[in-house]
Design a protein around this nucleic acid. Structure first.
Lengths: 135, 135
DNA sequence: TTGGATGCAAACGCTTTGCATAATT
DNA sequence: AATTATGCAAAGCGTTTGCATCCAA
């Protein structure tokens, strides 16, 4: 046996708490990837005393469980989204800072990698103005 | 007139210091984008007492001058590279964490943006193993 | 009752800034 | 001599962790 009990991490089966419900609901109702702070703001509508640390802990757990997926962005805090069907990318609005799903992928990356490099994956991020911010 | 003298920022014409020389040389000899810490390590070979803050300040100034370009990456500290000719993207090695230039671009992003969105730019990051790390 | 979950605050890693000192022009 | 540049340490920002308390099972 390990001999050393888990330090404090949320290891066992998840318990049903109002915080968890509110956090999960924030993602379900957003319809787009959320940053932790955005998730906090939304979830606080249900649980006003909710703390940011709780949001981070739950996001981490949901990601580990596969109920949430991490969306890493260049030069911006990560967003988190509910897992969707196919391979897709994201659009980052320069005005409202919102992130939106983009269903498709141009493909054709195989030829880009320099000789001797092994290509294992890719990321595409589109920038501009979302429908709500475009004039 | 402004009436208030510059707070402390490096505003005037750049002076020639050994630190600056070493920092610029770090990028010139690297042949690939560098993170601030990588730049520090390289520049310290010439100026051992060089401080990290000095590296950050000089990088910021070089970027403002256009002598250096920022390479932002998802979930990783930004790199900085000497400005090259055409539009290009980057390859991020999962093993050594190094970043390398990729000369081409697949294009074809125009069709991806959702309806009503205004596409203004894009970023592509390739992942895998660089020539030095590939088996 | 009991171990996981929460909230608050402190700690962290990366980056920026304040300030006294060192160095360039 | 006048100022900018440097180095160090402290502050900021987003994220994680420690800990006493709270609560679901």
């Amino acid at each position: 046996m390990t001999g050393r009990r888990s330090p404090s991490p949320d290891a066992g089966p998840a318990r049903r708490t109002p915080q968890r419900r509110a956090i999960r609901r924030a993602f379900e109702t957003a319809g787009r990837p959320l940053a932790p702070e955005e998730c906090l703001a939304r979830a606080r509508r249900e649980v006003p005393r909710l703390g940011l640390a709780t949001v981070y802990r739950n996001i981490r757990r949901l990601v580990a469980e596969g109920s949430l997926r991490t969306v890493e962005l260049p030069g911006a805090p990560a967003r988190y989204e509910l897992p969707r069907a196919g391979h897709h990318h994201h659009f980052h609005c320069r005005a409202c800072d919102g992130v939106f799903e983009v269903d498709d992928c141009p493909g054709g990356f195989g030829a880009l990698a320099p000789g001797g490099f092994r290509l294992e994956g890719h990321e595409v991020i589109l920038y501009g103005l979302c429908a709500g911010c475009a004039p």
